[in-house]
Simulated scan of single mutants.
Amino acid sequence: MPRRRPGALRAHRSRHPVPRTRTAPPPPRIPGLSTATTLAVHRVEAAYPDFLVFPGATSTALLRCRAFLVPGRRPLYPRTAACPSCPGCALDDVREARDTLAEVLRRLPPRPAGELASVLAALDGRYAARTLPDPRAPRESAAWWHGRLGEGAEGW
């Protein structure tokens, strides 16, 4: 007597008889990160909204850091944002953008955090090489990227 294959038996007992479909399109991919890390970042941005972390903040902060570190050899001087109290405008300051990336990195699961950390390590190396240390900056109060020489504010 012929037997039914195990896959044929399980097909009738499926918990999801109707194929799953998405109600919304997938979130946009963050340049330089894998799809899995991008999804993890979007989950973190949606789950933990605050001043530094909001939907799209990681992508904007990475673009801002990359735009600040244009190729060249001249020293770069970060500028304070013209409107630092607005979450979107605060990312105009590369130091605030790096704060946002550090906060997202802290909240990510281990594997996506490792991938984002490797991207940030490359950016941090270029940032440290192109900016100058501020001898007057307090060493213990802020992250190391705040202790670099800056000039004025954006748009002033």
Rank of each mutant, 00 (worst) to 15 (best):
residue 98 R to Y: 10
residue 73 R to Q: 04
residue 50 D to W: 06
residue 19 P to K: 14
residue 19 P to T: 14
residue 108 L to G: 09
residue 99 D to Y: 04
residue 101 L to V: 08
residue 63 L to C: 01
residue 21 T to P: 12
residue 103 E to V: 07
residue 82 A to F: 10
residue 46 A to Q: 08
residue 78 P to Q: 05
residue 104 V to D: 06
residue 79 R to E: 06
residue 42 H to M: 02
residue 106 R to C: 13
residue 50 D to I: 10
residue 108 L to M: 08
residue 35 T to H: 12
residue 17 P to V: 15
residue 66 R to M: 04
residue 30 I to Y: 11
residue 88 G to D: 06
residue 39 L to E: 10
residue 92 D to L: 13
residue 106 R to V: 05
residue 42 H to K: 03
residue 99 D to M: 09
residue 102 A to F: 08
residue 83 C to M: 11
residue 24 A to Y: 13
residue 22 R to M: 13
residue 64 R to T: 10
residue 27 P to Y: 13
residue 70 V to T: 12
residue 59 S to Y: 00
residue 79 R to T: 03
residue 82 A to T: 11
residue 26 P to Y: 14
residue 66 R to L: 03
residue 101 L to Y: 00
residue 55 P to R: 07
residue 108 L to T: 11
residue 34 S to Q: 10
residue 29 R to G: 12
residue 79 R to M: 10
residue 63 L to H: 07
residue 26 P to E: 15
residue 79 R to V: 00
residue 37 T to H: 06
residue 49 P to I: 08
residue 78 P to T: 01
residue 44 V to W: 02
residue 100 T to E: 07
residue 105 L to N: 07
residue 104 V to W: 04
residue 81 A to V: 02
residue 51 F to H: 13
residue 19 P to E: 15
residue 60 T to H: 05
residue 59 S to Q: 13
residue 51 F to I: 05
residue 34 S to M: 10
residue 85 S to P: 11
residue 28 P to N: 10
residue 54 F to S: 00
residue 61 A to T: 02
residue 34 S to T: 13
residue 51 F to N: 06
residue 100 T to A: 15
residue 44 V to M: 01
residue 87 P to Q: 05
residue 88 G to R: 05
residue 51 F to G: 05
residue 47 A to W: 08
residue 17 P to K: 15
residue 71 P to K: 02
residue 93 D to R: 07
residue 100 T to V: 12
residue 88 G to C: 06
residue 107 R to P: 03
residue 79 R to K: 10
residue 29 R to H: 10
residue 95 R to Q: 05
residue 90 A to Y: 04
residue 68 F to G: 00
residue 24 A to N: 14
residue 38 T to Y: 06
residue 82 A to W: 09
residue 41 V to Q: 13
residue 103 E to A: 13
residue 32 G to A: 06
residue 73 R to I: 00
residue 84 P to W: 09
residue 86 C to N: 13
residue 18 V to K: 14
residue 20 R to D: 15
residue 86 C to G: 08
residue 31 P to M: 08
residue 79 R to P: 01
residue 53 V to K: 03
residue 97 A to T: 04
residue 46 A to L: 08
residue 51 F to Y: 13
residue 90 A to D: 09
residue 33 L to D: 11
residue 71 P to R: 01
residue 98 R to C: 03
residue 65 C to R: 05
residue 19 P to C: 14
residue 103 E to W: 01
residue 60 T to F: 00
residue 80 T to I: 09
residue 44 V to C: 12
residue 33 L to M: 09
residue 91 L to C: 04
residue 82 A to H: 14
residue 24 A to T: 15
residue 62 L to W: 04
residue 31 P to I: 07
residue 58 T to G: 09
residue 81 A to N: 04
residue 74 R to V: 11
residue 103 E to K: 09
residue 108 L to N: 12
residue 44 V to P: 03
residue 47 A to C: 08
residue 64 R to W: 00
residue 43 R to A: 14
residue 45 E to D: 05
residue 94 V to P: 04
residue 104 V to A: 08
residue 26 P to G: 14
residue 25 P to E: 11
residue 87 P to T: 08
residue 67 A to Y: 00
residue 69 L to H: 01
residue 48 Y to N: 05
residue 42 H to F: 03
residue 39 L to Q: 07
residue 32 G to F: 06
residue 87 P to G: 08
residue 101 L to C: 01
residue 80 T to L: 06
residue 99 D to S: 13
residue 24 A to D: 14
residue 34 S to A: 12
